[in-house]
């Protein structure tokens, strides 16, 4: 019934429907998050017997003083700033072009979507070859325009750009598809109205496309920022289990991974996870605040 009043019975019924999903999400999402928050305060911990003998802030003071962690935060920020804006702009540009083509668009869509359904490891293998200093495709192409070969994967100055380029490319497919959906949802009437109102193609783009696409742009950006903050597999696969030459591609999650799996410093690993969590939270809140003004639903 449409005007049914919530009763105890109906509320319990509702909760029961939610229960299975709730149980799964409590076990595998909420519990680990709480646990890792707690773990970041363990200062003396026996992992195998799960016995904590001391709590404190020393994990955080360790991070505060650890130059490796500073490097990881810096690299992560560089990565986010390097990847997200370019990724958004390039995917939007390609989506706009695909939207104009009528006939082969679906073929192109598939091509651009492939990276999304291909495993990161396989992609990294291919890029490993593309970046190869001696016989890689990229250096060959650069050679054609007279640029000296770059040792992409072994030069600490070029490892981060190499990682950024691959990540931008990898993220394109999914974002192009999202942008195409967004573009399709803009009623052609608005363009006709704008044309009648005297808007040329550029004005139509800035006055109709950009504002009406803004919810999708916001989604893509937030999603991209969160994903980029958590970058790990790309590094692991591209630099074959290292954080790049002289740690030049060490990011927060890579740092966390090393602390946890190779150094068994669980408390420090958990603390770096907490720092990452708050970094992402702050940036996402900033984006939400910005979107209040600039995103039109």
């Amino acid at each position: 019934m449409l005007n049914e009043k919530p009763t105890w019975k109906s509320s319990i019924k509702g909760w029961l429907y939610l229960l299975p999903m709730l149980a799964i999400s409590l076990t595998f999402n909420i519990y680990p998050i709480i646990k890792s928050f707690l773990m970041s305060f363990y200062t003396k911990y026996d992992f195998y017997n799960d016995i904590v003998s001391a709590y404190g802030f020393s994990n955080f003071t360790y991070l505060w003083n650890d130059p490796d962690f500073h490097l990881a935060v810096r690299n992560t920020l560089i990565f986010v700033i390097g990847v997200v804006p370019l990724n958004v702009i390039i995917s939007l540009a390609i989506a706009l072009m695909l939207n104009k083509i009528k006939y082969v668009a679906s073929a192109f869509r598939t091509i651009y979507f492939l990276p999304f359904v291909t495993s990161t490891v396989a992609i990294a293998q291919v890029w490993n070859w593309i970046y190869n200093a001696d016989y890689g495709l990229l250096n060959y192409l650069l050679g054609l325009v007279g640029i000296n070969p770059i040792n992409w994967l072994n030069d600490p100055n070029w490892a981060m750009p190499a990682l950024i380029i691959m990540s931008i490319w990898k993220g394109l497919g999914f974002n192009i598809v999202l942008f195409l959906v967004g573009l399709n949802n803009i009623n052609t009437r608005y363009y006709q109205a704008a044309e009648i109102d005297g808007a040329n193609s550029w004005h139509q783009f800035t006055n109709v496309t950009i504002p009406l696409l803004s919810p999708m742009t916001f989604l893509v950006t937030v999603n991209g920022v969160i994903g980029s903050f958590k970058v790990f597999d790309e590094i692991f696969a591209l630099f074959q289990g290292s954080s790049g030459p002289s740690k030049s591609a060490l990011t927060i999650v890579y740092y966390l991974y090393e602390k946890f799996y190779t150094e068994w410093k669980y408390g420090i690993a958990a603390a770096s996870g907490v720092v990452l969590f708050f970094l992402i939270l702050i940036v996402t809140l900033l984006q939400l605040w910005y979107s209040r003004k600039h995103v039109h639903y």
Partner: peptide, 20 residues
Amino acid sequence: EDALARKVGMVFQNYALYPH
């Protein structure tokens, strides 16, 4: 001539007001 040059005003069935 295109719509701009003809200088017509138009009201659409669903108004097509810019929602933003």
